[in-house]
Amino acid sequence: MKPMRPLVETDVVATVIDLVFFSTGGLVCAVESAKVQGLRKIEESPAPSMATLLHFPERAEPANHPPRQWLLRLAHPNGTLTVRVDDPVLHERIPATALYPLPPLLEARLVLPGVRGLARWRKPDGETLAIILDPNAFKWVCM
């Protein structure tokens, strides 16, 4: 009699994921909603913008139509990381089929920490690709 193969506990892969989408530096980005601890209207705050944390230039917005900004509170291994992000900020449940790992050449040459993958997102004004970020990889900024 053939020996029985040991049972292997397989992971159940989620078919949907909750993401919080936002804009920063003119790009559409997203983080897992499980990493978002809160969102509030911006007042006087020295919190850095997400674009600054990611070391890419903040897009110059027309002075008469600056985007509304929000303070996004993210879970970080060192505590809560508070960053400024631009409107629109939306919580969406998207199918796993809309998520993409980074293409291999891009992954090999990317120097930016915290970019996990890409998400196809149907915005009200059309479809776009959002950059999925991992707050754990960001430099800790104590506020």
Binding site: G25, L27, L54, H55, F56, Y100, P103, P104, L105, L106, R109, L110, V111, L112, V115, L118, R120, E127, T128, L129, I131
Partner: peptide
Amino acid sequence: IYWVPGCPSSLEGVINVRGDVTSVI
């Protein structure tokens, strides 16, 4: 072409090809 920050300038970004995402050099 969707720009991705943190890449060399020779890597222009990514495109969506019928539901698949690929880089553009």
